[in-house]
Nucleic acid binder design. Structure first.
Lengths: 216, 216
DNA sequence: TTCTAATATGACCGTACAGTCATATGACCA
DNA sequence: TGGTCATATGACTGTACGGTCATATTAGAA
């Protein structure tokens, strides 16, 4: 983690460094990112850099942790409100917050997110944990619950795969719509987002609940 | 592309270099891959390296092109047989060859595949083309056809997103089954694979064909 | 054998890099 | 004012890298 000195910096300078680092890792990858470039672009001296971080690994972990915190603040706030809802309502909420989180990310942050699962030779237990998307564990729990109450009737692994990919698919769908419509920010219209979500939710409902009258 | 000298090498030596390069790029990424390491690990001199390739970019393009050819030989052979089949049968075939292709890949090759879409600052028109998965264009064509014949009734973009993600999901599902069952090679049992495919195919059928008796 | 062309080699060069450290700067207090 | 502590700086060092090139090796042809 960054040294105390880094957190003593004024917000502007700190965020500048973080912005530059984000771009550096996104553009050149974990093993291609260079201290020299970060130092030049963020206008600090190399000596200072090593007073903030022990090295690039340290900086990378910090960047990824920021990303993780951002995600938790999006998803976490939604989770508290799930208590009374039924299974599909719960997922509707989670998809919505998932989409909102995604659209809150910059291109560089998206790149880092995609990069994470394929980084090798990175010895940081913290990141190992982070690589496994936290909400997956939560998904599995919800699915098991829904199976036991009979809310869904489907193979557990099938349900997990289909559900855990839905957020990404909704986002892909919205991006395509954006391109086709020539509008860059369809997602900002929440009703469009909700419409897209219901499209995929219907698919889930059909696929995960056995229809009556169909025996095999 | 590699120089003639490289292709004059005997197969064993050539494949050794390719194997080392694959591992190098998979482990350290495009910008982190080093000539020195490749040279050491594959037991050739640096001078020779530069008689085979103009540099690491060149080598990378070669590796990715190999991967592309491998894919085409898997998918392409299937495409010729699609003529008479209906829409969902066509996709059944494509999913099957997709899964077979995936399981023919080494871990390193899988890593490179995942890496491709997020590599920046790579000035190679060839790769730009390759980054867009070739079969996507083919998917779109098939979908348009199926919509016009009435075989599917669904939003075009919705159909595309759902279908184009199905291969990945089938693979994810099979991998989960592998883990749960403790058997590493469930996929080699083709009937397991076909069963998984039909699971997802049913979902597609439900989602992309409007049920009778449901009006809105 | 000798000649020729293709290929192999690693020492070598200039550059870019990570990381250090003596020094400078500034801020706060006595 | 002078003293002290936290921070800033960039010149410096050793290393690793990309890329070159004169030389060595090999294979085949004459």
């Amino acid at each position: 983690m960054p040294k105390e000195t880094f957190y003593n910096l004024d917000k502007e300078k700190r965020e500048k460094i973080e912005r530059v680092a984000l771009s550096e890792f996104a553009n050149f990858g974990f093993h291609g990112a260079k201290v020299n470039r970060v130092v030049d672009k963020s206008g600090i001296s190399k000596g200072s850099f090593y007073q903030y971080f022990t090295g690039m690994d340290d900086l990378f972990v910090h960047i990824v942790e920021n990303l993780g915190k951002k995600k938790i603040s999006f998803i976490g706030s939604e989770l508290k409100l799930l208590g009374e809802k039924d299974f599909f309502e719960k997922f509707e909420s989670m998809f919505l917050s998932g989409v909102k989180f995604y659209y809150s990310l910059s291109e560089d942050e998206i790149t880092i997110s995609k990069m994470l699962p394929i980084i090798k030779n990175l010895c940081s237990e913290k990141l190992e944990v982070m690589k496994k998307e936290a909400n997956q564990i939560f998904f599995e729990h919800l699915i098991d619950e829904a199976i036991s109450t009979g809310e869904i009737q489907a193979d557990r692994d099938f349900a997990f795969v289909v559900i855990s990919n839905t957020s990404k698919q909704i986002i892909q769908y919205l991006r395509r719509k954006n391109k086709v419509m020539g509008i860059e920010k369809v997602f900002e219209n929440e009703s469009n987002v909700k419409e897209a979500i219901s499209l995929f939710l219907d698919l889930l409902k059909m696929g995960l609940t056995k229809k009556e009258g169909k025996n095999e």
